[in-house]
Design a protein around this nucleic acid. Structure first.
Length: 607
RNA sequence: GUCCCCGUAGUUCAACGGAUAGAACGCUGGUUUCCUAAACCGGUGAUGUGGGUUCGAUUCCCGCCGGGGACACCA
């Protein structure tokens, strides 16, 4: 269904006439005293038309047909056009929304999107550094799917590279089998660190590592078996974490999947002239097509601009991650199979319109170079390439988030602590609840709190990790939103009412006359208006890949609900008002649950 | 050094170039014979600095100050 915002925008566009390419936009008003929606179009058009903005606004309003939706639009300030919705229009929209499976979120033209996120490394524990990519990528995938896009999520795990030389040497010499059985990842981490130390002092150890790496790459059976075992053990860990987080990947190809493509990629880059040799390495240099300061292959020092090439084949002949990323890109753009369980024909390849990489901001230069190389190498490719980057998680001391002893925080342990802290609170607040249920509630609340804390800040901001803040029931947190949902569920339990029974039948927007609803109370009206904005907020998120917009919306919705609930009795209300209020409650609960679900966060029925 | 990001209330975070910069915590005043007070309703208090573009700048451009990050064979 269409949003009120888009209806107003198209009516306004019709009244404004030729805007010379200026988009006619309507936004929800920041302050209710300006009405519900506002547009700046008169001010934007005033200059090119050499008109007085307020005069122009008056002319636009004179042609504008919106009396089915709002009161006569008002002109304010320098030329703002303000819209105030008629209660009848709010009721009609709210009723249609309540009958809509998509809760008023419009369908958009379908695009095919690959989302590459999480990307943990084999033989290493997942740690706090993986949270943002994992949580953000999953939320974007869920939101894109809800909007109707065709999405493939791909976990590009680090399962290939020079570190396996050292791991293989260590596996053969210092591995403790018992320790490996007890704690596989811990033992792999231990032997890697130990071997790394040995290599620092003993050049023969480095040679040994190189030797084992070459054998692995040449297909040596023993090394291949060890590598596969390390991969398997790591995947067990990944699966456990992803299961706790409720995250699913359509693909987990990993870097090793592309290793047979690397030679061809390098050859193509060389023969197409994209890359050339320098100091024994094969490099991509600037092609001077961009202004110097925008060129990802240039860097300036005191003597002027100098080359900052991207290396696609090291002097020793090995490839690096740029090469792997190019191979990955080539497969994803042209030959990514739609399904993994059967061979597919040409028209079953995925061929994405967009590929989204979710990584931290430190990789910006890498992706700028990667995308630039791709454009030069494959100029006919039209796929949109997006690097969705994010800031760091800091400790309360303002430095990168670490344990007290200065180690990286392991993701599994972090989730344990979140659940444990949530369990303590739930036990405190609801001691009568059976322990099994308290555990389950603590799981939903604890995991939700961690995810929400991560999604709430603008993704490009660094943020401070605070257990107390994220698990608080006050303020913009997951527990507060979950509590809002629970409180609504409690109303229906108390009244012995099936929520489905208060919902209008599908298509109810055509028969609003049958609905005796009135939204006489200010709390009712503002809640209904806030519900109508769900469909306006969700599509905006993908424009800049910013799920925090949804967090802020849900928080405002919960606030609107609590205000309504404070001033409007539900179960004790007289009929007509009672059923309208029950529907407001139910719809709020559905939007809260759906909104949280889009962020990858669950809701308990009680807490 | 060059490039990227950041600098907003005591603190932690918001704000498609729009109106009187919005929350939470903190501090502070109030609300419960009533559907979960894990709540609600008030008060307090901020755009680092100097220019520029614009009808309008936290937002865009330039300088300065302060913080973080990236910059040839790690990913």
């Amino acid at each position: 269904m269409e949003t009120i915002q888009s209806i107003l925008a198209s009516r306004l566009a019709a009244a404004a006439g030729d805007t010379g390419g200026i988009a006619v936009t309507v936004q929800s008003a920041q302050d209710t005293r300006f009405g519900d929606y506002q547009s700046n179009i008169a001010m934007q058009l005033a200059k090119p038309r050499r008109a007085n903005p307020r005069q122009l606004a008056m002319e636009i309003i004179a042609k504008l047909q919106v009396d089915d939706l709002c009161e006569t639009p008002e002109i304010a300030g320098a030329g703002f056009i303000n819209f105030r919705l008629k209660p009848a229009a709010v009721i009609a929209h709210f009723t249609a929304l309540a009958a809509d499976d998509h809760l008023g979120v419009p369908s958009v033209p379908q695009r095919r999107i690959v989302i590459d996120f999480s990307s943990p490394n084999v033989a290493k524990p997942m740690h706090v550094g993986h949270i943002r990519s994992t949580v953000l990528g999953d939320a974007l995938a869920r939101i894109a799917r809800f909007l109707g896009h065709d999405v493939i999520t791909d976990n590009h795990i680090g399962d290939w590279g020079t570190q396996f030389g050292m791991l293989l040497v260590a596996w053969k010499t210092i591995l403790n089998k018992d320790a490996l059985d007890r704690d596989p990842i811990g033992e792999l981490e231990r032997i890697y660190k130990a071997q790394n130390e040995l290599c620092k002092t003993d050049p023969r150890q480095l040679d040994a590592a190189r030797g084992e790496l070459v054998k692995l790459q040449d297909g040596n059976e023993e090394n291949d078996a060890i590598w596969k075992e390390m991969r398997r053990l790591s995947q067990v860990q990944f699966d456990e974490i992803y299961s706790r987080l409720g995250i699913h990947f359509d693909r987990t190809y990993g870097e090793s999947f592309y290793r047979y493509m690397l030679r061809d990629v390098v050859n193509e880059l060389y023969h197409s002239g994209t890359a050339r040799e320098s100091d024994g390495a094969l490099c991509v240099f600037s092609d001077d097509s961009l202004p110097e300061r925008d060129d990802p292959f240039l860097i300036k020092d005191e003597n002027g601009w100098k080359p900052a090439p991207a290396i696609v084949r090291k002097a020793d002949g090995a490839s690096n991650y740029t090469t792997t990323d190019l191979a990955t890109l080539k497969l994803r753009v042209g030959f990514l199979p739609r399904t993994t369980d059967k061979p597919c024909t040409t028209d079953e390849f995925f061929r994405p319109d967009e590929i989204i990489y979710v990584t931290d901001g430190r990789q910006q230069l890498h992706f700028r170079q990667l995308f630039a190389i791709w454009r030069r190498w494959q100029p006919e490719s039209t796929a949109k390439l997006s690097h969705v980057w994010f800031g760091s998680i800091m400790g309360e001391d303002g430095k990168p988030f670490k344990t007290r002893s200065g180690d990286t925080v392991k993701l599994g342990e972090l989730l344990d602590e979140a659940e444990e802290r949530a369990f303590t609170t739930v036990t405190e607040k609801s001691p009568e609840m059976p322990e099994a249920e308290r555990r389950e509630v603590a799981r939903i609340v604890g995991i939700g709190a961690v995810k929400y804390a991560d999604l709430l800040p603008n993704r490009q901001s660094d943020y401070v990790f605070s257990w107390d803040k994220m698990l608080s029931f006050q303020g913009n947190t997951a527990p507060y939103l979950q509590y809002s949902y629970v409180r609504i569920r409690s109303i229906f339990r108390k009244g012995g009412i099936d929520p489905a029974s208060v919902r209008p039948a599908a298509g109810a927007e055509h028969s609003t006359a049958n609905n005796a609803a009135t939204l006489a109370e200010p709390g009712e009206l503002s809640l209904a208006k806030k519900l109508a904005q769900f469909g306006e907020v969700v599509p905006m998120i993908l424009d800049d890949h910013r799920p925090n917009l949804l967090c802020n919306y849900l928080y405002e919705l919960a606030g609107a609900f609590h205000s309504f609930f404070e001033s409007c009795p539900v179960l004790k209300a007289v009929e007509s008002a009672r059923s309208t209020r029950l529907l407001l409650c139910d719809t709020t609960a559905r939007v809260l649950a759906k909104g949280l679900d889009l962020l990858g966060i669950g809701v308990p029925e009680r807490m």
